[in-house]
Design a protein around this nucleic acid. Structure first.
Lengths: 142, 142
DNA sequence: CTACATGCAAATGCTTTGCAACCTA
DNA sequence: TAGGTTGCAAAGCATTTGCATGTAG
């Protein structure tokens, strides 16, 4: 197995963590960058990105990979969920019935007007599963 | 209200739709581009992007906005879901209990090794809700 | 000391856009 | 004929990376 990497606690890393913990609005890297910059004007965006990577790898913070701009297209316009291979990116339909009632749980519990939801499963396709046996366990603990 | 736009059926648009319907692997724009290029070597990637936009707007195809593009960070490392405003991008926690058993539905039904799932709610935050009353209805029919 | 980390700038990768020419209804 | 559409190239934008220098352990 690969030897363990030892991480250091640098002023930059500490500040990034501190500032993120002050923010309750699930900020992006740019917003964290701006916050840190007020206390350490010479930080670089690159440093912020690198540290956010490391900190989420260490489990100190969580990276939210929300759905975003265009990625994939589907000729099937019916509602259905997908499963994606974390290794190779393959996407297939997930044979799971639509959660038609899941949005009801939010009524009264949020101030948002709910429009819909997205559910996506993550895993390994058979090919990558074989190639990469220990990977699953690793990600499980994430 | 805005006057209705009339769309045309161009050879490019038709081919893009045809090729997408042949592909069962939820392709990205680049893959569709390559497929179309075999039959129409001078198409441009820009045309492919523009048509995928229009076709999904028309409901002829579905755009899968899978996780991975918008990166936000969260100091809270416990499992929880989020709700995102489709207008302004604000993200908040969604007060919904984790679907601990949802992945079980897939055992035996998929050849993938399941590692996890992501659930995200989409809606309008109170501020955008007010500004944009007809929007909700529009998106509902999507 | 030395491997990890930083600042800076350049390089990605994917998507969008401006524009002049083109073509569908 | 009008206004949507195309190819091309350039521009965007968020994120990553190469490199020389700096520094925590």
């Amino acid at each position: 197995m690969p030897q363990k990497k030892t991480y250091r606690m640098t002023p930059q890393r500490k500040l990034i963590l501190e500032e993120l913990r002050k923010l309750n609005n699930h900020p992006g890297a740019d917003e964290i960058y701006e916050a840190v910059r007020k206390r350490l004007p010479r930080v670089s965006l690159g440093t912020v990105y690198r540290n956010l990577d490391i900190l989420s790898e260490l489990g100190e913070i969580q990276r939210l990979e929300l759905s975003g701009t265009i990625n994939r297209f589907d000729w099937d316009t019916k509602k259905h969920y997908h499963i994606r291979c974390m290794e190779c990116g393959r996407v297939e339909n997930a044979p799971v019935a639509p959660l038609n009632q899941i949005e009801d749980e939010l009524y009264g519990a949020t101030v948002y007007t709910i429009i819909g939801h997205r559910l996506e499963f993550l895993g390994l396709c058979p090919a990558c599963s074989k190639k990469n046996a220990p990977y699953e366990q690793l990600e499980q603990s994430n």
